[in-house]
Simulated scan of single mutants.
Amino acid sequence: MSTERLFLTFTHLSDATRHAEYNAWHQLDHLPENQLLPGVAWGDRWVRTPECAAAGHVGDVAFEPVQYAIAYGFRPPLESALRDWTDLNQRALWWGRRPELAWTERRSVGFFHPVKEDAAARVLVDAAALPHRPHRGIHLTLSRTAAPSAPTGASYFEALDRKLIPAVLTVPGVAGAATYRFAEGASGFGSPAPDADGDLVVRLLYLDGDVLETSALVENEQPDWIGRSSAPGDVEHVLLSTPMRSIRPWEWDWFDRG
């Protein structure tokens, strides 16, 4: 696995006039500095455009404002990788290179353990290469699930691994999938994590087909992946399930159109 630990956060802007400024800072300054660190295996970010939001599902209103997802994968040794990464974020404050803090809000910041990565047979590359392989976007699902040690949880995770993920990997435009389970919160990197985060699961689909068309195909062929009918207390309660687009440099006008 290329990802020993995943960091994930969702953000939205409290000042709608600053999307270009935010993306210029993150894509041209912050992200390259982080990817330079030897312990960072990869870093990426995606945008939940208005069209993506309309095509997705929100099962917890706290995630309705989400506009961006930011993720970093870390390689071992984790202690030094996370120390260097944290130190860079602190030094950026002293450099005066964190302009976004006054008008950016974060949600569900945390670290996740990798569970499994799977690549569609047609893409040929190893599953560990998926974060490094170009893609047009992702479909991200954040859920609360029953514990895998409980009978209902064991059945759910067996079906996810043996049936649901293999079926989704056959959908045209889906290049691969990755599943992560919650490890710990990330104090100092955003809003405090909500209670009982130990049952959080993240599922990512890497999409090399058109993001909206591929997401529609996934929902049509495997509606359980989206979880629109899930509710609190179910074996899986989907909090957010949404397509998100990859961010291309200098093309940052999604929230200005129309």
Rank of each mutant, 00 (worst) to 15 (best):
A183W: 11
L200T: 00
L205H: 11
D234A: 13
G176W: 02
F182S: 02
G185I: 01
Q222S: 12
S187D: 12
T179I: 03
Q222C: 14
L204T: 07
V201W: 01
T179P: 00
G198F: 07
G190R: 04
H237Q: 14
A186Q: 04
P192Q: 11
N220Y: 07
D199S: 15
N220T: 08
T179E: 06
A177Q: 07
T214I: 03
N220F: 07
L217G: 09
G233D: 05
L204H: 12
D210Q: 04
V202W: 02
H237K: 06
W225H: 13
S187Q: 13
E236D: 05
D195Q: 15
Q222K: 10
D197Y: 11
L212D: 10
V202I: 13
L205D: 09
W225L: 14
V201P: 01
P194H: 11
V174W: 03
V211N: 10
E219R: 14
G176L: 03
V202C: 02
P192R: 09
L200K: 06
D224C: 07
G198V: 01
D234P: 02
F189A: 15
A216W: 04
R181M: 01
S230Q: 06
V211D: 11
S229Q: 14
E221G: 09
D224Q: 15
L204P: 05
D234M: 05
V218C: 06
P223V: 09
I226W: 12
G188V: 04
A186I: 03
N220G: 13
D208S: 07
S187L: 15
L240E: 10
S230W: 06
E184C: 09
F189D: 15
D199K: 10
Y180C: 00
G188D: 09
A196P: 01
S229D: 15
S191Y: 05
T214F: 03
P194V: 11
E219M: 06
L205K: 06
